[in-house]
Design a binder for these strands. Structure first.
Length: 849
RNA sequence: GCGAGAGUGGCGGAACUGGCAGACGCGCUGGACUUAGGAUCCAGUGGGGCAACCUGUGGGGGUUCAAAUCCCCCCUCUCGCACCA
């Protein structure tokens, strides 16, 4: 009688078993080798998506593998639970963010348990919980006390109608997404972490990250954007104001024919104020600043500028050149001022051509001379200095450092390294975030909230209005307080923190999650951290992964931790994609609304594309539905099979079905073989399939171990597992011991991926302890040895035949065997053998003529 | 534009430091068992050819006894950055 495979039944059974036996609870004081695996925690949207499924299944499989290696494995989970969506829901639907968040977390926790992901739930944390954000605030104050958290002015997108700050994605075509009013740039005083000062250290520490993907390192390097050059101080001819610029081409400083300031440059307003050209300049500035706000995609945008009426004196030669405001000059890079050398910079060249500004050549190619009149583009390559005073005739590479030294000596400038990494703007004019624990007092100024008054909690009875204004600002109970220093009435900071602050240190709190007296116990964290294996999406390559590296450096300097990098090894999983269908009239369509490329609603032709799963494109798959239909093991198996985990995968229902079928076959097969294993196995002696099955069993161990441990290639690991299954099936003449070893090995190596079915079958084999507490199968090298091997014989590089020979055959014997092969001998008969190549154990190649 | 990566059957993808291209799976074809099959089992499956054999890893050239793999040129796609002075 056949016992049917009922995934849902056995899955809940084993989930309860793991739970009851506390198999994922960690003893932080253990003497065993530790392993800390962390998956990036989710925002609690209320429903799991396939991106979570790949991320957490991958993590869980590695966790289970390491547990089977006998390590004490820390695998925590929590919630990145502050953020905009909850606040928007509060505004739209009137649900308080906290209530909504708790409800969503409860729902997702159930889904996670159903998927069979093993976590130490005693360590669960939520960044929106006061027990957590108390310490986010404490860390902020530590940063503040070290001068790493500072207040300075910064431009924000401001809607004059709603009187509120807008995030970049809330600005559409320069207008407020909510009311359509034109958005302006407004300077607000905001909190920053002075991360830019850490630029070089963040770059240098990359050398420690040998187990991070190279592309992440590259992206970070570009993000930090180090460039070497010089600072040169120019002077406003009319007023004497100093204007420092940064340039990577100090060798072209004699060729400056104008200067460009960023529209936001503070000098612009200061200079033109009260002049006849004020209106024209400021109008242009306003226009240019607007372009900068939102639609960066509006590329190819025309170089634009306006003459300020003022001039600049070039310190190196006394040249007086016009001062312009230009839209290509960025306030956020360098000093916000560019020395413009149209002859040798393409951007400056285009600008000069457009506005009829002079072009002055200071570097000529080796064997020719440039003529400013006929140039059609800037000459940016190397050459020889001309029109450059005492540097004439010098190769420009040499001139670079010579000019810098000379500038330095004459105090016109100096060698400088510039970074594009900016300070971290962490103020958010929002409710649902960590309140910044600062009090403003009229007599004492800016006062940090004393540690014993932390946490500064979010008030609950606030009103969410659709204006976008933070409710904190209007909440007088919250805002009004007493100065901790002098006791006089004072006001609280109403901004909250960027949620990236919360996620910059959560990996340490997991280790000591309920500590009420300290952010964490440093000894414990130094034992468990850094994270051994960190898994998450590539979209965090620059933001989260730079912020948390910055935090680690600071916390190291504070003496909280004794390392500078949060994670030793990083793995970024690929996106989950699915075909999406678009109809011009009916917009995005569900899978079942399309047939043979035609829209079933209107009959129009449908355009289909593979795209990342998203709600708007209607190409999502709900994990709950997959688990209902096939069970968690099938979902886990499918998501790890076929495609390497770091690549984008295309969801296919057939693939899921195939995974399900495999598990059914596995189930049936083990049941079929059960009687062979329990049969009286007193009969001794080797059986005909023994050696082969044993060899395949151990080959599987070897390859699966490598694929999981080193390569993180579950697709190839699974291919090997499938081969073992096929081998077991076709082995009809085996001794019970060999068969048992094969099946037990199979269940062990498969268990990290599909743990429930493996546990169930494992127990049916008569085992009483969980696979999680057994040991990963050990490789016996001698079992891999083959009796015979296949060697290829090529003639002129083409395979002509294959030989079956003993593995230890000598090269001479191999060559002779090849030559005397019937087919080969007829082919080489009467020909001249020019060369004989013998690669032991692989091939023989005869070159003949 | 700059930077990085990738192009292999109908599809997802294998292939160690150059050594049998297409592992494994999906799909498809034929067959078996079935009242039935989105079940299971057997066989087949890069293309061409009855066959021996020929041909084949985006295109072109090169190195080599031997190239998916190394070198040069070109094409296409994906990702990241995007006026970075």
């Amino acid at each position: 009688m056949k016992i049917p495979y009922k995934p849902q039944e056995i899955e809940s059974k084993w989930q309860k078993y793991w739970d009851d036996n506390k198999l994922f609870e960690v003893d932080e004081y253990t003497d065993r080798p530790k392993f800390y695996l962390l998956c990036m925690f989710p925002y609690p949207s209320g429903v799991l998506h396939m991106g979570h499924v790949i991320n957490y299944t991958l993590g869980d499989a590695i966790v289970r593998y390491h547990k089977m290696l006998g390590e004490e494995v820390l695998s925590p989970i929590g919630w990145d639970s502050f953020g905009l969506p909850a606040e928007n829901a509060a505004i739209r639907l009137g649900i308080p963010p906290e209530e909504n968040t708790v409800k969503n977390i409860d729902r997702m926790r159930i889904q996670m348990k159903r998927a069979g992901w093993g976590y130490d739930w005693r360590r669960e944390l939520a960044t929106s919980h006061p027990g957590y954000y108390k310490w986010t605030q404490w860390l902020f104050l530590q940063f503040f006390k070290r001068g790493l958290a500072v207040k300075k002015k910064a431009p924000v997108n401001w809607c004059p109608n709603d009187q509120t700050v807008l995030a970049n994605e809330q600005v559409h075509d320069g207008c407020c997404e909510r009311c359509g009013t034109e958005v302006i740039q407004k300077d607000l005083s905001q909190w920053f972490f002075t991360m830019s000062a850490m630029s070089q250290r963040l770059l240098d520490n990359h050398t420690k990250l040998t187990q991070w993907p190279e592309n992440v390192i590259k992206m970070q390097q570009e993000w930090i954007g180090r460039s070497e050059g010089a600072r040169i101080d120019f002077t406003i001819t009319e007023t004497g104001d100093k204007v420092p610029v940064f340039t990577t081409r100090p060798d072209t400083v004699f060729g400056v024919t104008f200067m460009s300031l960023a529209p936001e440059h503070p000098l612009v307003e200061k200079l033109v104020c009260g002049t006849p050209q004020e209106r024209e300049v400021m109008d242009a500035v306003k226009r240019m600043r607007q372009l900068g706000t939102s639609v960066k995609e509006l590329l190819g945008l025309e170089k634009e500028g306006v003459f300020t009426g003022f001039h600049i004196t070039n310190p190196v030669n006394g040249d007086v050149v016009p001062l312009w405001v230009a839209n290509f000059a960025l306030m956020t890079y360098g000093t916000g001022a560019v020395m413009s050398v149209p002859a040798h910079d393409q951007r400056d060249f285009e600008f000069a051509k457009k506005y009829g500004l002079p072009i002055k050549v200071v570097i000529n190619p080796k064997d020719s001379r440039l003529d400013p009149q006929t140039m059609t583009e800037a000459y940016v390559a190397d050459g020889v200095q001309v029109n450059s005073g005492q540097f004439d005739g010098m190769p420009n590479r040499e001139a670079m450092s010579a000019i810098i030294s000379w500038l330095d000596k004459n105090r016109f400038g100096s060698r400088t390294i510039n970074y594009s990494l900016r300070d971290w703007l962490l103020s958010r004019q929002r409710y649902w975030g960590v309140p910044i624990p600062i009090i403003y007092c009229e007599s004492c100024g800016l006062v940090p909230v004393p540690d014993d008054q932390l946490p500064v909690t979010l008030p609950k009875n606030v009103e969410f209005k659709p204006t976008g204004e933070s409710p904190l600002k209007q909440c007088s109970d919250f805002i009004n307080t007493k100065c901790p220093k002098c006791g006089k009435p004072a006001r609280r900071e109403s901004d909250t923190m960027d949620t990236f602050v919360d996620s910059s240190w959560y990996m340490y709190r997991y280790i000591d999650p309920r500590n009420e007296n300290a952010v964490f116990d440093s000894d414990l964290v130094n034992k468990w951290a850094p994270v051994d294996f960190y898994i998450g999406g590539i979209e965090h390559a620059t933001m989260h992964l730079i912020y948390s590296r910055f935090f680690a450096c600071v916390m190291h300097d504070m003496g909280l931790i004794n390392f500078e990098e949060p994670a030793k090894r990083l793995f970024c999983q690929g996106m989950v994609c699915k075909t999406a269908h678009y109809c011009n009239t009916c917009k995005w369509l569900q899978e079942d609304e399309v047939n043979a490329g035609v829209c079933l609603k209107c009959g129009a032709t449908v355009v289909s594309e593979v795209a990342k799963m998203s709600k708007t494109k209607l190409n999502t798959v709900n994990p709950d539905e997959i688990m209902n239909k096939y069970g968690a093991d099938t979902m886990r198996l499918y998501i790890l099979s076929d495609t390497p985990p770091d690549r984008e995968r295309i969801w296919s229902e057939e693939g899921v079905h195939g995974a399900s079928r495999f598990l059914h076959r596995l189930w049936d097969m083990v049941h079929d073989k059960l009687s062979d294993l329990t049969a009286n196995s007193a009969n001794l002696g080797e059986r005909s399939d023994d050696k082969k099955l044993l060899r395949i069993t151990h080959r599987t161990i070897k390859q699966v171990t490598g694929d999981i441990d080193q390569n993180i290639q579950f697709n190839t690991a699974l291919a090997r597992v499938y081969e073992l299954v096929n081998a077991i099936k076709s082995s009809n003449d085996c001794s019970p011991a060999v068969m048992r070893e094969a099946i037990e090995t199979l269940l062990k190596v498969l268990s990290p991926i599909t743990p429930h079915i493996c546990e169930e079958l494992w127990s049916k084999l008569g085992n009483t302890q969980s696979l999680l507490t057994t040991r990963w199968p050990e490789l016996r090298e001698e079992a891999l040895i083959e009796d015979t091997i296949t060697v290829v014989v090529q003639i002129n590089g083409k395979v002509r035949t294959k030989l079956t020979v003993a593995p230890d055959i000598t090269e001479d014997d191999l060559l002779n065997t090849a030559k005397s092969d019937e087919k080969v001998s007829t082919m080489i008969e009467g020909k001249q053998i020019l060369k004989e190549i013998v690669i032991p154990k692989k091939l023989v190649n005869l070159v003949i003529r």
